[in-house]
Write a protein that binds this DNA or RNA. Structure first.
Length: 219
DNA sequence: CACCAGGCAAGTA
DNA sequence: TACTTGCATGGT
């Protein structure tokens, strides 16, 4: 008897196929993108990343040397550019001064310890930390986001007021501890959310999960 | 026009 | 601990 969480995954994968996340050329780009995309649509983040890459500035030390004003101008299309400048610089300072801007040094740490390290950086919360762990460093950590809570509470799999940590435990209890699986699952949830489960004007009639549930039972 | 997007920290009680 | 509010551009 497989869990509903597993059945939903299969349904999503069958409908949408592999999502090829995270769209980036390097782990460092994932880390920057993870902060830039906080409460922001990905298309706007892409514009900011293009600004950075076109100037050959996708490098921890180069970015850190920029004046705040100039930094903010580069990431302007991603919104919240002043606060994100501070958050990115806080992360860059952490990454450079504590880990020599070396991705491998981060990756060698115990996952649980690294998560706490990331959370100690002002501007990195649970979702951003877990996105970095999973998508930059390939650690088997399940990422929770607003779509996850919306979709799974609407399908009566989670309480609407469930905490981040509780939701994360729910998924990690229900699935094998596999980074590739967690990678695809979260990306598929975002795909479903974008296409069918937006906050306003959800397309519930056409949603691939619509026929999965019947009075609490999985068909 | 109003509302939202791959959140988070700081302030208040 | 549990709410509330500011942050900001760009698409629908």
């Amino acid at each position: 008897m497989r869990s509903k969480v597993s059945l939903i995954y299969r349904k999503l994968y069958d409908n949408f196929g592999p999502q090829a996340w995270w769209p980036a050329d390097s782990p460092f780009e994932v880390m920057i993108g993870a902060i830039l995309t906080q409460n922001t649509s990905w298309v706007n983040v892409e514009k900011a990343l293009i600004n950075i890459k076109q100037r050959n500035l996708l490098d921890p030390r180069k970015l850190y040397k920029l004046r705040d004003k100039e930094f903010a101008r580069l990431i302007r299309p991603a919104g919240y550019y002043n606060i994100k400048t501070k958050r990115l610089k806080a992360f860059l300072n952490f990454f450079i001064s504590k880990y020599s801007a070396n991705v491998k040094k981060l990756s060698l740490l115990r996952t649980n310890y690294l998560r706490k390290e990331l959370l100690s950086v002002k501007g990195i919360g649970p979702e951003t930390a877990d996105s970095i762990l999973l998508y930059a460093l390939n650690k088997p950590v399940f990422v929770i986001d607003a779509y996850t809570l919306r979709i799974f509470s609407r399908h009566n799999q989670l309480k609407e007021d469930v905490s981040y940590d509780e939701a994360q435990e729910f998924f990690m209890r229900s699935l094998s501890r596999n980074a590739k699986l967690f990678n695809e699952y979260h990306a598929l949830i975002v795909k479903l959310g974008k296409d069918y489960c937006r906050k306003t004007k959800p397309k519930c009639r056409a949603c691939p999960l619509r026929k999965c549930f019947n009075s609490g039972g999985f068909l």
